[in-house]
Design a protein around this nucleic acid. Sequence first.
DNA 1: CGGATCCATAGGTTCAGCTTATTGGTGGAG
DNA 2: CTCCACCAATAAGCTGAACCTATGGATCCG
Lengths: 293, 293
Amino acid sequence: MDPRIELRHLRYFLAVAEELHFGRAAQRLHIAQPALSQQIKQLEKIVGVELFRRTSRNVRLTDAGATFQPRASDLLSRLAADLDEAGRVGRGEAGRLDVAFITSATSIVSERLRAFSRRRPDVQVKLHGAFTVDVLTALERGTADVGIVRDAEERDGIALFPLTSEPFVGVVPADHPAAKGERLEAAALAADPLILFPRSAGPHAFDVNTQPLRDAGVEVQVAQECSNWHTIILLVAAGLGVTIAPYSVTTLLPAGARRLELDGPPRTSQIFMATRRGDERPLVRAFLTASET
Amino acid sequence: MDPRIELRHLRYFLAVAEELHFGRAAQRLHIAQPALSQQIKQLEKIVGVELFRRTSRNVRLTDAGATFQPRASDLLSRLAADLDEAGRVGRGEAGRLDVAFITSATSIVSERLRAFSRRRPDVQVKLHGAFTVDVLTALERGTADVGIVRDAEERDGIALFPLTSEPFVGVVPADHPAAKGERLEAAALAADPLILFPRSAGPHAFDVNTQPLRDAGVEVQVAQECSNWHTIILLVAAGLGVTIAPYSVTTLLPAGARRLELDGPPRTSQIFMATRRGDERPLVRAFLTASET
DNA sequence: CGGATCCATAGGTTCAGCTTATTGGTGGAG
DNA sequence: CTCCACCAATAAGCTGAACCTATGGATCCG
């Protein structure tokens, strides 16, 4: 396209097309009439056809001008809308936010999302459930803007913000010897097969989780890995083993499973929000600070 | 919308957004780097948000910039298409043409339209079947660009171009006394009820049509008006009267009707193309001159 | 025929966008 | 740690395009 053409030409053209009078159109544009004549002539030279048929008495649109008028008008209003949209995105009032989170923190995410969506109704939030490691790599790759992880270690390029913490609890089958009491000594699990989240899904979280066992001198031997807490609890209830889990995944226990407080120094699972370090985008900041009114 | 914004800003923005490098983008735009920096900064001031995040090491799009990029690109290509369209309309290669025509000349219109459409496939032709008077007023009002009429009189503001002519013929029921011969003396119709097109649909055409009768001293008394030649012929075939018609509407005669040549000086119906006088639009000229290859 | 109207042209002016030169900040190599 | 290469921002002056005023030429009207 001819790079000489500018929006000025379109604005001037539209003014003349609406007024059908160079003098009045020039007045509306706050310029003198000759300047307008010149610019229109230049536009016609660029397009290669007459857009107006002028006599010294009146001005009419040619067919070419008549077809161009609505398009030019449309173009300008589109541009206005696009600029406005860009402004809103820049101010964090609109746009899209990718949130990656560990599935065991779904309730926290949905609560935060509700608060956030109320404040930024024009922001489209996309949720990606995943493991802690995948959440962090999604952040690093730029696939996600905000992450929610459990017991992550500080690392380069990722900023962590603690959200809440919850205790670890033991979960045993109802017919387990320890199931009669309210509390559980970690050592009592020494003989039972352990069912746990794969360490690869979140090494640090795994280590924090299993620390009570090591503290009690129990060697951590995972009998069964499972990457879904709900399933793990069901396996325990079925009598296939025992586990240590963050409290929140044990709120709804099936019959056949018992939750037991852990003895010893209190151990908690920490839930963090994570962003790329230095990501100061208003949408990201807004999500970090959004909480229920 | 801020009238300071110009297409230059969009072009420069897109160059930087694609190169992510002010130096290279400036090179591509054939300007110096500082000029580009200034224009981008000005654009950002107009929009009110940062579009690029620059370090002295690299350039990245902000969220606002990323949303704006495809829209700006789309805008420019739309404009290019619109300018091209306007140019094609101006040169008569595209656009829309309204053709009003008398229904009794449908075959002529369709023939002409076929020739025209082959040459101007991007022109959308709209056909309006009507009476001669309505065709002419449509032209005058600008509702139609080209008209096809029968036996019209010259009048102000309308230019007429003869297309073809055809003889008038008499049409009588098969059991009419004159039906035995090949030729018809107009005076022989004196006693029969006349079925004719309404004079109001085209006064001059009506007068030309009925002149053979007046020449023969027959007083023209219309027994039945009908504004559709096909129907008139059917009425004749049904024995309700006689008529004088342009030859072409009698090509397919129903049983019960006979076509007879008229005695006396040859009378013909003239078919014209009509335009507004001084309408030199290329599409109109092209339709006037289009004929089968 | 004189006056009013309106678009085009002519010629001078001004400022926006361009130029070159330079600064300042960052990252990588020695 | 220093030096250098790289890159965007800034500074300051220049140039041309868009603008101005004044005028010309055409058409319509009283």
